[in-house]
Design a protein around this nucleic acid. Structure first.
Lengths: 355, 355
DNA sequence: CGGATCGATCGAATCGATTCGAACCGGACG
DNA sequence: CGTCCGGTTCGAATCGATTCGATCGATCCG
C-alpha cells in the first residue's frame, strides 16, 4: 500500500461513493457541506493531494497544455529577447486559465530527427509556432496531422491557421523615411536569417530571391515601400550583437565616399552590434554613420546612447496569442491579429554627413 | 463521426483486435510484419496520427513532463542569461528521453495566489526549482505534498531533495585572492538579492543577517574565506546591468582615499553594470578601480574590455539536472552534484592604484 | 501421425478520474 | 396517509490506451 492514494481510497475512507468524492473536489454539482468536509478531512488524513491530473485529463480530453515551438533551436531563441518576452506575455495570459506552456525545440541539429519527439507525441491542446514556419515545415505538418489547432507568430499567412503579427513592414518604412528625411542616400541593412540555412554575408540578387522566412522579407520590403533601395544587404545567421558587429566591419570599412551613411538593423541586437562595430572602426554614431534598429528593447550597455528603433508591443503580442488560444479552445475561430508598432527616435540617427 | 479516430477504430478498420493494433504502434511485443503494416495502412486511411498521449499517460502513470519553476527568471530572462542557458542545457539532455519541459511561474505578483495553479494540478513526473527555494517556500511545499520528486538548483541543501550547484563559494574566494594579490585592500561587493523582499542599497550588519537566499550568502562567504572583509556590501533587487550601474554610483562616488579600489559583482551582469557606471563617473577600469564578476558569460558590449570573472559550466549544470531527473525516474536516488568553476582573468582587474 | 513448442493474436482487466441518469430520503402538500 | 418534489448520493459507463494471461494455429520433432 505504498502507492499514492486514489480518489477511491479517499471515498471509502470517508464512507461515500467515488462519485460523491469527486464532487467534493471538483465543486461541480450539488453536495452537502457536511459531506464535502468529511471527504476533505479523509483526504487530508490520507495525504491525498487532489485528483490525479492524468485521470482528469483523459476523461475531459484536455491536457491543459499549450505547446510552444521555440524557433530553430532553443539555444538561439533564448538569446533572443523578443521570443522570451513574448513567452512571458503568453504565460501571463494563459496561466490564469489553468494552462501551462510546454517548451518544444524546433528543428534540431542536423542528424537529429526532423521534428522533436514531443511534436509527435506530447499531449497538448494547442500549439504555438514562434518565428513563423512555412507550409512545408515538417513541424507544422506534424502538428496539423495530429489535428492540433495552431497559432503562428510572425509567420506568413497560412490558410486555416491563426496568425499573430505586427506591422513590421510599415515600421521599417517609417524608419526608412526618417533616414531619407535626414538626407541619407546610401542606406545599408543588416537582416535576420533568410531561412533555415542561416548564411552569413552580403546577399546578392540571387540570394535575395531565396528568402523563406517571411519576417526578413517583410522588413526588407518595408525599406522599398519607402522608396529606399539598400546599397548593401548583409544577411546574418542569428540575431546577435556579435553578428551585428561583424556586419558593421563588412559594411563600414570602405572609404567615406562610398560607405553607407546609415545602417538599418532588422533587430535591436543586430543594430546595437552595428553601433559597437562602428565605434571599433573609429566612426562616430550618428555623426559618421546613423544606425537604427527594430524591436524597442532597452539596451543598457549602449548608454549614454539610445538606439533609434521601432518599438513593438512584445508582451501584448504574447497576450494576443493567449487570447487566440482561449478562443480556439472555446471552439471559436479567432481572427488574425496585427499589432501596431511605433517609431522611437533615439540618439543613434542624425543628419547624413556632408558629402 | 467527426470525432478523431481512436485505436479501436483503427483496429476494426484493419480487422484486428485493439491490443494487436496497440502492438503495431508501440513495438513492444511480437507482431507479424504483415499485420503491423495492415494496421499502419488502416491508420493512414483514417488519418490516425498515433495513440492518444492522454490514454497512454494514464495507463503508464507517466506524463513525460518535467515542471520547471522559473521564479521570476522568465520575466527577466534575457536579463538573466544564466537561468536561460541552464534551461537550454536541461532541454538538450532530457529531450532525447522523450521528456518535455513545462514552464511554471514561481512567485507571482502580490495579490495572486501564493503558488501558480500549475503547481497544484499540472501533471508532471519531476519538478525542478531554479534559484533555490527555502524549506518554507510554498511552491516547494506544495510539490512535496503531491509527492513529486524534486531537483533544486543553487539552493541550500534540503533533506531528501536532490541538489545541483556549483563551487561558487570557492570561486569567489579565488577572485578575492586574485584581488588581494594585486594589492587591493578596500574591496566592495555588489550582491544578488538577499531574499524575496528584494531591497536595494547598502546593507548594514542587521540586514546582512537577513539573507534568506543562500546563493547571495555563499558568494559573500567566499570573500571572507579569502580573508577579505568588504568595505561595503551593496544589495540589488535583481541581477541586471542597470542595477550594477546604480551600485557603482553609490559605491564609487567618494574621494579616492576612501573609495574602494576593487568591486566584486556576484554576477557578470551586475559587474558589467559596475564597469559602465565607473566609466560614467570618469573612472578608468582597471587603473582606478578593478571590477570582477561571476558566471562567465560573454558580454559583447563591454568590448574591447573582457570581464575578469569566475566561469561556471552552465550548460553542464543543465545536463546534471537532466541526469538527476533520469535517475529519479528510474527509481534511483541520485547524489547531489557540485560542479567546478574556474577563475578567468580579463582586462578589468589590475594592480591597486598607489595610495 | 500425434504431441510439444513457439509465435501471433485476442479478451479482459486496468490506470484514475468525471458525469449522467437513477435511486433514495425526508418533508411538504393534498 | 399517499404522492410529489427538491436536494443528495450512488452505480455504472466512459475517456483511450497498455498489458498480461489465454488461446489459437502452425511448425517441428520423435
Amino acid at each position: 500500500m505504498s502507492q499514492r492514494p486514489t480518489l477511491a481510497d479517499v471515498a471509502s475512507a470517508a464512507g461515500v461513493s467515488v462519485s460523491t468524492a469527486s464532487l467534493a473536489f471538483s465543486g461541480a454539482g450539488p453536495i452537502a457541506e457536511a459531506t464535502k468536509q468529511r471527504v476533505l478531512d479523509a483526504a487530508a488524513g490520507l495525504d491525498y493531494a487532489g485528483p490525479n491530473p492524468l485521470g482528469r485529463q483523459l476523461r475531459s480530453g484536455r491536457s491543459g497544455i499549450v505547446g510552444v515551438v521555440v524557433g530553430d533551436a532553443l539555444r538561439r531563441s533564448f538569446r533572443e529577447p523578443v521570443s522570451v518576452q513574448l513567452l512571458d506575455g503568453l504565460v501571463d495570459t494563459i496561466s490564469p486559465l489553468g494552462l501551462g506552456v510546454l517548451l518544444i525545440p524546433g528543428s534540431l541539429e542536423p542528424g537529429a530527427p526532423a521534428v522533436d519527439p514531443l511534436v509527435e507525441s506530447a499531449a497538448m491542446d494547442v500549439a504555438v509556432l514562434i518565428w513563423g514556419g512555412t507550409l512545408d515545415d515538417p513541424t507544422l505538418q506534424a502538428l496539423q496531422r495530429r489535428g492540433i489547432p495552431l497559432v503562428v507568430v510572425e509567420g506568413q499567412d497560412l490558410p486555416g491557421i491563426v496568425t499573430v503579427g505586427i506591422e513590421d513592414r510599415d515600421g521599417v518604412a517609417d524608419i526608412a523615411r526618417h533616414l531619407t528625411d535626414l538626407g541619407h542616400e546610401r542606406i545599408a541593412t543588416v537582416t535576420l536569417p533568410f531561412g533555415p540555412d542561416r548564411r552569413s554575408g552580403l546577399a546578392d540578387t540571387e540570394r535575395l530571391g531565396q528568402i523563406t522566412w517571411s519576417i526578413a522579407q517583410r522588413r526588407l520590403d518595408g525599406l522599398r515601400d519607402a522608396g529606399v533601395t539598400p546599397t548593401a544587404v548583409y544577411e546574418t545567421p542569428a540575431s546577435l550583437v556579435e553578428q551585428g558587429k561583424t556586419a558593421a566591419h563588412a559594411l563600414l570599412s570602405g572609404p567615406p565616399e562610398t560607405r553607407p551613411t546609415a545602417v538599418v538593423g532588422q533587430s535591436d541586437l543586430l543594430a546595437s552590434g552595428v553601433v559597437l562595430g562602428a565605434r571599433e572602426l573609429g566612426l562616430r554614431v550618428p555623426q559618421d554613420v546613423s544606425v537604427a534598429g527594430f524591436d524597442g528593447l532597452d539596451l543598457p550597455w549602449l548608454a549614454p546612447d539610445v538606439l533609434t528603433t521601432v518599438a513593438q508591443p512584445i508582451a501584448e503580442k504574447g497576450a494576443a496569442v493567449g487570447r487566440a488560444i482561449e478562443a480556439l479552445l472555446a471552439g471559436g475561430t479567432p481572427a488574425d491579429e496585427v499589432l501596431p508598432v511605433e517609431l522611437r527616435l533615439g540618439t543613434t540617427t542624425g543628419p547624413a554627413p556632408r558629402a
